[in-house]
Design a binder for these strands. Structure first.
Lengths: 210, 210
DNA sequence: GTCTATATGCGGATAGAC
DNA sequence: GTCTATCCGCATATAGAC
């Protein structure tokens, strides 16, 4: 299980990098093998088909996103939320091919469609919980329907921000991708935030919006 | 030019339908030809390569979206905005493959990347203008930075709403797709809207949010 | 303009030696 | 586990007859 699982992992790692760069559909198994430095035959020994690679990567992503998002449910202050949002966006960034090329992913692995939707639904629930939590803590002044709306906007940001980002002026920016995504979500709170939490928001704006 | 351009148009129309359904990358020229009822060879007589079909469809989309979006710049009331948003989302819906499969589109037609970004930028400018216009008209109470943020959220919605929608519970819904997208954007105004415009928002909410 | 037939290449996947 | 060699199928695109 030593060298074997190592090769397996290298395949997954290389695939992740290539998928993130070009999308799963545009990455051939030959190219993955070349990237890893093994033969196409060997690759098929470890993964009998390409969708199995995608599926395995998705499972990793699913787990990681779930725990990022779970952490957000109990936030009591706006900088807690900032932290968990940052974590979440880093996860989405690390596996950005999943949401960006969601159609390719689903087409290749039909079984994944339901799981993606379920994952999205859990993100929505967690987002709602975190917003509601902030409202209870007095950080936000928002009606129930406003909280609902905020949660949808959060999930929209989490799932689609990177796609959107590519269409905007500053396209594939430098290091702060995750931070800028997280900042976008956080700034959605702006109309509802009360008290000194507002200062924190302004501090972040100066840093990430420009 | 009679029968000729008719076949050309039928090719474009069929391609649009198939692209919207499955994405350009998953639609072969054979399938387009079969859909139109002509031979693959004939299709290549009219369009020497598949990217040329994509490009032609994009140009149509570009023109149509531009005029939808231009119309929004001069809105003075919230129901004017509703109308133009609806129009905009109908256009995006009619050519939904463009933004949904933007990576495939750009990969196949490298020259389109800049034009997509330019189009997005013009959408942003128009959105900003329309929000600013509403603020001036007293429909919105929003600071300059809030208007900026709203405009970004609008463009985010216009470009990515349909992708997001597929991840959510009620996936590929029935007829009201464009209306629900437009409603999403409009409801982003909620925190800033003042006076009787709020009633209109509530009226729409009862209709589209459920 | 439209067809049939075909060239060409690539990507996924397998067989069998080492 | 890893390789080389190969098969198969599909998609783009072309050639040439009608």
């Amino acid at each position: 299980m030593g060298a074997s699982s190592s090769t397996r992992d290298r395949i997954l790692e290389a695939s992740l990098g290539l998928f993130n760069a070009d999308g799963p559909a545009s990455v051939s198994t030959h190219r993955i093998a070349a990237e890893v430095g093994i033969s196409p035959g060997n690759l098929h020994y470890h993964f009998r088909s390409k969708p199995l690679i995608v599926e395995r990567l998705f499972i990793r992503f699913e787990t990681q996103l779930q725990s990022s998002v779970d952490a957000s449910m109990s936030v009591m202050a706006i900088d807690d939320l900032w932290l968990t949002l940052h974590l979440t966006f880093e996860t989405v960034d690390a596996y950005r091919f999943v949401f960006r090329d969601i159609d390719q992913v689903m087409r290749g692995c039909p079984g994944l469609e339901e799981r993606v939707k379920a994952l999205t639904a859990r993100c929505l629930a967690a987002s709602k919980a975190s917003c509601a939590s902030l409202a209870t803590a007095g950080v936000l002044s928002a009606s129930e329907s406003a909280v609902e709306m905020l949660a949808v906007q959060f999930v929209f940001g989490i799932t689609c921000w990177y796609s959107f980002n590519r269409l905007m002026p500053r396209p594939s920016a430098h290091y702060g991708e995750a931070a800028r995504g997280a900042y976008y979500c956080l700034s959605l709170l702006e109309p509802h935030v009360v008290g000194e939490a507002r200062d924190y928001l302004n501090y972040l704006r100066a840093k990430y919006l420009r």
